[in-house]
Each structure stands twice: as C-alpha cells, then as structure tokens.
C-alpha cells in the first residue's frame, strides 16, 4: 500500500499538526492557568478550586448545583426518549415500512437546518401551555431536547441498523415463537447495542451543553447557571467549563471505542450521505 503519491512529507505533516495543536491548546491552557490564579498571594494556587466547596460561599455556587441536577434529569429523560421512542420507531420503519426510510431520514436530519434560536420562538407558547397543565418542572424541557439531539441519535442508531440484518433476526426470532416485545428487547436491542449506546452518549453530551432553549424559556440548567455564576465569580465558571470539556472528551473517546470495537459496524459503515 503506497500512499506516498500525495501524502505530505513527514516534516510538513508535523509542522502543520504542531501549529494547529498549539493554536487549539492556547485557550485550554489559558483556562487552566486562569483557574489557578491566586490574587491575594500573587502567584498560583488551588484556592479557586477549593472555594467551590467552601460552605461560606455555598450561596454563590448554588445555581451551579441546581443547574447540574436539572441537566442530569434532562439528560436521563432525553436518553429515555431516544431509546424508548426513537429507536423502536426506527426498527419499525426498517422492518415494516422500508418505503418510509427516506422521508424518515429527512425528518430526522431536519433539526440541523432549524437553529435552536428559531425553534425557541415557536416553543415559547407551547411551553407556556405545558407550564399551565403539566407544571413548570424541568423535565418537560427534555421533549425539546429530544428534537435537538434527533439528527445525532438518528445517525448513530441508523449506522447500527445498517450493519445488522434486522429482518433476518426478527423473522428468525418470530418463527421460533418469540413475541414482538421479546424480539425487540431480547434479540434486536442487544444487536443494536453499539448504536444505542453511542446515541445515548452523544445525547448526554448535547444536553449538558445546551444553553439556547433553556435560557430563553427561563429554565435553569448547567449552562444558564454558568452564566449566572460567571457574573459574580468567573473563576468558578471557567473551572466548570474546563471540567465539562474534559468530561465531553471522555464521552467521545468512549463513543470512538464503541464504534471502532465492532468490526461488523465498521465494515459496512457507509460514507456519509447528505449530512455530516
């Protein structure tokens, strides 16, 4: 396998690579340095990290813990929507309505083209009605987030469906006497597990980073809390941003492992179609 025809010289490769790594490392290093500043001593210390758990300052940081709790609830409900509503529907479309696959794909990828800031204009009256009937709790917001994560979750699950002979598995299980719920839970779900897991993880990452909808519908989540606290104590917000970045990286590495760990999924992974 000789790819030297167009591959850049190793020195060029490294030069470009290093330049881009340095460019992207600067803001991240700056964040780390910023959180370690010690105004009183004039040097660097862990004072801002320790302050985060100081009971005397608990009042300042309360929005963060509330927001973190709310975001966790939203992440769980959104993943539930993906696994219990989206995934079974996709399996149903694949098995019984193959003609609907194209329109379904179009619908699932549509939220990419509709910015959250546009959606929120129309969501405001809907959540006003929801507030009056279901209450102003945080969890109904997950319905809006389910739409936001739809394109990402769809892709992850569809890749797994394309790599699995769903029809064969389902017919085999049916002819052996399994009921439809048993087919879904005990035969299809385990075979789709990499896709379902990847869809769940990307949903968690998106929900934890969501700001637009929560902020404009006056709900508190992690990101709105970062803004509120950042006005009084920017150090706390930078610390949490840094932690969130690290957490997202771990999530994505896990997704990468799942994707790369199943040779079957990789073999039939198709080039991206209409969307990234």
């Amino acid at each position: 396998m000789n790819a030297r025809g167009f591959a850049p010289h190793p020195a060029v490769r490294w030069l470009i690579g290093l330049a881009i790594i340095v460019l992207f490392a600067i803001p991240i290093v700056s964040m780390a340095e910023y959180t370690l500043r010690d105004a009183t001593a004039g040097g660097h210390s862990l004072v801002h990290w320790i302050e985060l758990f100081d009971p005397a300052r608990a009042g300042t940081y309360r929005p963060i813990w509330t927001g973190l709790g709310n975001s966790a609830v939203l992440a769980v409900v959104t993943v539930a929507i993906v696994l219990l509503l989206l995934a079974p529907t996709m399996v149903l479309v694949e098995l019984r309505f193959p003609k609907l696959k194209r329109p379904f794909e179009f619908l699932a990828l549509l939220p990419i083209s509709i910015p959250a800031i546009v959606l929120v204009v129309g969501l405001a009256p809907i959540y006003l009605a929801i507030g009056r009937t279901i209450g102003t709790g945080i969890w109904p917001l997950a319905f809006a987030y389910g739409v936001t994560v739809l394109p990402f979750a769809y892709r992850a699950i569809q890749a797994a469906i394309d790599a699995t002979e769903l029809r064969v598995l389902a017919e085999a299980a049916r002819s052996l006497g399994a009921s439809w719920p048993a087919v879904l839970v005990r035969v299809l779900a385990p075979n789709l597990r990499p896709g379902l897991l990847a869809a769940s993880l990307i949903s968690v990452a998106v929900v934890l980073g969501e700001f637009t909808i929560a902020s404009l519908l006056n709900r508190q989540n992690l990101q709105t809390a970062l803004v509120v606290v950042g006005k009084q104590d920017p150090y706390a917000s930078v610390i949490l941003s840094l932690l969130a970045l690290a957490f997202a990286f771990v999530l994505l590495v896990v997704i990468g492992r799942i994707g790369g760990g199943t040779p079957r999924a990789r073999r039939s992974a198709r080039p991206p179609k209409d969307q990234p």
Partner: peptide, 13 residues
C-alpha cells in the same frame, strides 16, 4: 460540540 457558554469562558480566560 464545544460551542456555547463554555467556549465564551475559554476565550474570556
């Protein structure tokens, strides 16, 4: 995916 609020804080720092 690192858009949003966290990115704003990164650049403030």
């Amino acid at each position: 995916q690192f858009g949003g609020v966290m990115l704003a804080f990164a650049f403030i720092a």
